[in-house]
Design a protein around this nucleic acid. Sequence first.
DNA 1: CGACTTTTTGATCCGATTCAATACGCGTGG
DNA 2: CCACGCGTATTGAATCGGATCAAAAAGTCG
Lengths: 253, 253
Amino acid sequence: MMKNDTDKIVTLSKIKVACQSCNLYELCLPLGLHGEDLDQLEKIIKRAHPLKKNESPFQQGDKFQSIYAIRSGSVKTYTIADDGSEQITGFYLPGELVGLDAISDDCHPCTAKALETTSYCEIPYTALEQLSGELPSLRHQLLKIMSKEITHDANLLMLLGKKAADERLASLLLSLSSRLKNRGFSATEFHLSMSRNDIANYLGLAVETVSRLFTRFQDQGLIQVEGKFVQIIKLEELKAMTKECTCENPKMA
Amino acid sequence: MMKNDTDKIVTLSKIKVACQSCNLYELCLPLGLHGEDLDQLEKIIKRAHPLKKNESPFQQGDKFQSIYAIRSGSVKTYTIADDGSEQITGFYLPGELVGLDAISDDCHPCTAKALETTSYCEIPYTALEQLSGELPSLRHQLLKIMSKEITHDANLLMLLGKKAADERLASLLLSLSSRLKNRGFSATEFHLSMSRNDIANYLGLAVETVSRLFTRFQDQGLIQVEGKFVQIIKLEELKAMTKECTCENPKMA
DNA sequence: CGACTTTTTGATCCGATTCAATACGCGTGG
DNA sequence: CCACGCGTATTGAATCGGATCAAAAAGTCG
């Protein structure tokens, strides 16, 4: 915890530190690598300057070169439709990989943008793919992470497909909570780096609805909100909310 | 085309035929393999009896063993919530891989069920992962396919997140059309193997809405429907529908 | 401090669900 | 072969949730 905050002020010398000594190395790219394997991975990873808020590591349409591992901060990814409207496709927290969706077409299908000051590592993909041929554990983890992304998306699909507005917001809060928890942060108190607008966009709701929901959740004693800070009071009730409310199809076996 | 239909009647001897001589081998698992590489892949693939309608190659919660490649027919995948309601997460057509979402947790997060008589190949995952360490082209394709699944899901997210009912149905029809086209089938005339109920469930709509939309699309001259047979008349207009109707957020840069 | 953006709150409106009923398709058995 | 029954699909009318429109309040930043 000595560096959650200090992390934001990164000097060049600090940046050059190797994965081995990076305090986040077991979070970011949780590849379960050890010893030599880790050495090899380190060789291909580039450490980049931290992004300032609203800066982008890559833009929609850019040629695909690298995967990005978030070390601290957060980013959102979004696609822009022909008419200029944007759709947020995901929020990424420390320890998560951004850009996996670019592998198939060799070109980024979305733009990533920092929601706050964000430091990350860049992993050239060709090298990663090649290296994964040599290291079974790396290969295993990489496939696993991609699979997780698929599962995650599928869940979200379900969420957006048939969930009511309140269930959607509850799901997002729970998702953030559990992901932060996995990375060693508090599961019940955290800071929303994204705006209400971003949340609304992501959940497929109007900003007004999101705002009203936050108020309602608070009135119901489920959470405590103060601007961007959220405290989850009744985790279990929130969970129940996302599950049971499947008010439809109680017919089929 | 000598086997689209005859395919459904598969004798044991036919099943034993190798990938090399399988007329679908370039569709199913489009891995771009040749010669020896293909030989090696063949060794790990199991051919299974075709599924009859409503049969399942795997159930939600089953231990993850294999990936399944559809050769003919189609399946749906769905998850069952605690309350028993089901959410369809995808439809899979010939040449597509089912079960990739199970890699991360080593257990299938959804059930697959045949929508019609369906033949498939079973690919033991451990062997596939290991083999992909030896064959760069296999590794490359596998990652590519998984990435595509992620992109696909993300698109769907966008669709369900903020699209109106008509745009959703249009998107589904277009998705089926383009996927069938890629596999050498007609892009404009096809058979919907899933029920209206399945479609509604997948798109997050009420059955009645789906039904009304089919009628409306037909009235508008966009498609021709006759039960499960669909003919797309105005492909371009359907496409336009899914794009432009992003009536929201015309504000942000 | 003042201009601008983000968030909240209120009132109205519309699309999609829900409820209800009828039509169709298909397999079974008379 | 047709009658029957059950599941699936279509169509109509009423209701409700969330979007939209409008405006005030709270942050943000130069």
